[in-house]
Design a binder for these strands. Structure first.
Lengths: 134, 134
DNA sequence: ATGTGTGCAAACGCTTTGCAATTTG
DNA sequence: CAAATTGCAAAGCGTTTGCACACAT
């Protein structure tokens, strides 16, 4: 487990390791309670506060992204490389798209903001749902 | 007030008119409680449930968009024309950007989806918040 | 010894719901 | 009259917080 020490610049408690283990490579964009449910099965000592604390810490250290895809709850993405999303309007599946798009705003559009990044959501219908609709 | 009859395909009660009046041309992307606060000052008979009911109905009839920009609460946009958003990461202000971006995905990226539309969020810091941070 | 992390439970804010009363077509 | 809408209050759910205890450096 110590292999993570370099990778994650936070103190690695058993709880945090359990959470990181669950997140590692997870492409489901889980919510905090998804994480709590999954992790507490294996490690029953886990508390909700610790999940939130850990996610907070990870977000501060940029080890996790907090997504606003779902207006009901935060969802988390362990893939911190900037990327975009392809979302199925039917089944809500989310696929990552790893490409940079150079999108420049005009001075007028920029409204004197300092722009840091952009995120694109592509909305469509996945191949599975296309079949069903027919 | 009857001028709205054609425009909004819903039964127009005084409460709904009050909400529509507040939303008409509103570019602040208000939350449900923003709407409740503003409208109930003028029409004290307004209840929270009615605000949510009305927003739900309007969303079904595509008269309002529900935004998931803010992970804490839903925000609503009376502008249903497709457009993009410039978001202040500090104060969560949202500015509309009315431009079409032609963003084509490669066949590989498209994952056999039928893509309908895209939405871009530009994240940055607005001029107000830039001042405060210094 | 000091700071950091944990667990519990209570509190909080936004949203939804059940239901009776009212209004509308 | 039947169906839709309203207001109220309670409940639901995700999230945050306060605090005492445990742990690590």
């Amino acid at each position: 487990m110590t292999y993570m020490k370099k990778k994650y610049p936070i103190r690695l408690t058993p709880q945090r390791l359990a959470i990181l283990e669950y997140l590692e490579g997870n492409k489901a964009h889980p919510s905090a309670s998804d994480i709590y449910k999954a992790v507490s099965e294996k490690y029953p000592m886990m508390s909700f506060a610790t999940v939130y604390n850990t996610l907070d810490t990870l977000r501060e250290k940029m080890q996790v992204l907090e997504l606003s895809i779902d207006s009901k709850k935060k969802r988390f993405d362990p893939n911190t490389k900037p990327h975009h999303h392809l979302i199925c309007m039917e089944c809500k599946a989310i696929t990552d798209i790893h490409r940079k798009f150079a999108l420049d705003l005009t001075d007028g559009e920029r409204c004197d903001y300092k722009i840091m990044r952009n995120h694109i959501d592509f909305y469509g219908v996945c191949s599975n749902c296309k079949k069903k609709t027919k």
